[in-house]
Nucleic acid binder design. Structure first.
Lengths: 227, 227
DNA sequence: ATAACATTCAAACGTTCGTTTGAATCAGGA
DNA sequence: TCCTGATTCAAACGAACGTTTGAATGTTAT
């Protein structure tokens, strides 16, 4: 008898990845046990070790599945726009939208899998475990390098170290905004729209980030003299 | 024989809080075992349950010890400045500095305890465990309310929902910046200054946040028509 | 049909976890 | 000094953890 017929049509590997994505987001890596995870995926307890090797390898697979295509898409989008511009430097706003848009588009995923992943990703940037942070950093490195050089060309007059920090700030704003869906309720005092309006959020985020990126240079002279 | 003489002079409670602060920052809550923690604190395994009741209660105590005075100081600073201004609305930059300064001053703590705590705090805003996030939210609520109303007075012309989001963005930028000390190295490609220069960082952060807060309003009309 | 391989399954492995226990040791006042 | 309450200590508790095992079952090609 074939019991698979009553299971979701996905392969076991995919069902495990989907369950892991949701549970890692809800409870974190450590608090998500293999027993809970495999039960949700309708798989045997040993299935994770069979298909992925270990829990850590599963974590890596969860990120690679979505992050690799997402960052490849970001780079392709930047390449396309620069080609359209005939090799001239892009406007800062266009670069920001290319970066932010890739994340926000995934939020609108109908099956909520992308939304879960984005929230998970947003908080994993600051995961306590060093090997997890370095995994994320490694997966982001190519896209990060590409965007950094795009910003450098767009803002040739900005000091390099200042630019690095402002990219850092922008990255943080995005990460936190995606990860913390409830803190905004704390500020507002009541819950906002039930569902994120991704388009409106993109407009708000882009306006904020662009202004921050192009902020007048602070007077570092004062600071250094005071020290 | 009194062995306490060779231990650090602090009370056991304080030694446990110090050890917890550092280990929670390094490894997270789940990955920090009571055995490792009590060993580092030079205390017996049962000491945490005796002095705090449970591991969760210890976590709460770690946050209350620093966060309550820090936010009280923020509110007092705002009160003082408004009194000096004769009740007139403060400049946005002054409000931002009052908020950011409290965190950055703790980074300069000589014994690194404050630095550890700030990094721990920055990542706990997005902790997967809901009861931990709500604890943080609860500890922040009074200060958050106070700053929100200060911003509302400083920017009476800004739509309330837009202001809420921009405060959210600012909060996120600060939280991420404090939590992620290594991502900036990823962007830069090499490690920046070995030690954070808190003054310089404050100048950079304030310039970025102020520009974002005061950014021109995005054209939300376009967005809503397109939807 | 049969051999070869892939996957699933129930059960158990050894380890580590947070917490509890009850006795031992400390401190300070009567 | 003795009593009382606070604190420390070694030891153990049951539960939950990630992983491994070897047999059972499923699939595919010859």
């Amino acid at each position: 008898m074939n019991l698979r017929a009553i299971k979701p049509p996905h392969e076991t590997r995919t069902r495990i990845l989907d369950a892991a994505e949701e549970l890692f987001m809800q409870h974190g890596f450590e608090s998500t046990s293999m027993r809970l995870l495999t039960a949700k995926a309708d798989a045997n307890l040993a299935a994770v070790n069979y298909h992925f090797g270990s829990k850590d390898a599963l974590i890596e697979a969860v990120f690679r599945r979505r992050l690799d295509p997402m960052n490849a898409g970001r780079i392709a989008e930047l390449d396309r726009q620069e080609k359209d511009a005939g090799g001239r430097a892009l406007a800062p706003e266009a670069i920001i939208r290319a970066f932010v848009g890739a994340s926000l588009r995934m939020i609108e995923d109908s099956k909520n899998g992308g939304r879960n992943f984005i929230r998970l990703l947003g908080r994993t940037y600051t995961d306590p475990q060093k090997h997890i942070r370095s995994l994320i950093g490694q997966l982001y490195a190519p896209a990060m390098e590409r965007f950094k050089s795009a910003f450098e060309r767009a803002l040739p007059q900005m000091p390099r170290d200042e630019l690095v920090w402002r990219i850092h700030f922008m990255f943080g704003t995005l990460a936190y905004t995606l990860a913390a869906t409830d803190t905004v309720q704390l500020i507002a005092g009541c819950k906002p729209e039930d569902r994120y309006d991704a388009r409106l959020l993109e407009a708000r985020l882009t306006a904020f980030l662009q202004a921050g990126l192009l902020a007048p240079l602070h007077d570092a002279g004062d600071v250094k003299k005071a020290a």
